[in-house]
């Protein structure tokens, strides 16, 4: 786990820049997992790149980088979004929650624990995004049906084919949360 100080400044450069215009870096504040980060970034940096690069929150994965696989899912004000399709400079004052922000200290979120209990990941690359979608579902619908879980994870690709275990894990996590 990372413990950001209240303000950090990190400058980033992208390789292969060939555009003649060179707009200035902009300073932004990102509210991530209850911490506030001050970053100096290029306007073209995506939220996913900001999380994984300067913030070193590498739990969020980038796979397709086109919003087609949902591996990069984080919450924006509690709502799941693809962080690869959101510019870091467009987040504004909205709060970002990543997979690193889900556990309370050493205690895993019920969905994280249920994913372990139900063997709901194999290679694990889709798991952080999948868990963010399933945890968001339980926030808005504490007693979901299997179809609710299917709808919640409908944007996710898991090429290991863990879907049945993900559904079982999420339904179990819902029970754990109510217990």
């Amino acid at each position: 786990m990372f413990s950001p100080t209240s303000a950090m400044t990190v400058e980033t450069q992208h390789p292969g820049d060939d555009a003649p215009a060179n707009p200035p870096l902009v300073t932004i504040e990102l509210h991530v997992n209850s911490a506030v980060w001050t970053l100096c970034v290029e306007p073209r940096m995506t939220l996913a790149e900001a999380l994984r690069g300067p913030l070193q929150l590498t739990g969020t994965k980038i796979a397709c980088n086109r919003g087609a696989c949902s591996a990069c899912t984080v919450w924006l004000d509690g709502v799941p979004i693809c962080s690869c399709m959101m510019l870091a400079t467009d987040v504004g004052t909205r709060s970002v929650t990543t997979i690193e922000g889900l556990a309370s200290g050493e205690k895993l979120h019920p969905v994280q624990q249920a994913f372990i209990d139900h063997d709901a990941l194999q290679c694990g690359f889709c798991a952080p995004g999948m868990i963010m979608s399933c945890a968001a579902l339980l926030e808005r619908s504490p007693q979901p049906s299997a179809d609710d879980v299917r709808a919640a994870i409908s944007g996710h690709y898991c090429r290991c084919g863990t879907y049945p275990h993900v559904i079982a894990a999420t339904l179990d996590a819902a029970k754990m949360r109510r217990a």
């Binding site: 924006l76 799941p80 979004i81 693809c82 399709m85 979608s133 709808a151 919640a152 944007g155």
Partner: peptide, 9 residues
């Protein structure tokens, strides 16, 4: 249309 994550944005 699209996926839940995309529809949210």
């Amino acid at each position: 249309s699209a996926s839940p994550q995309i529809r949210n944005v």
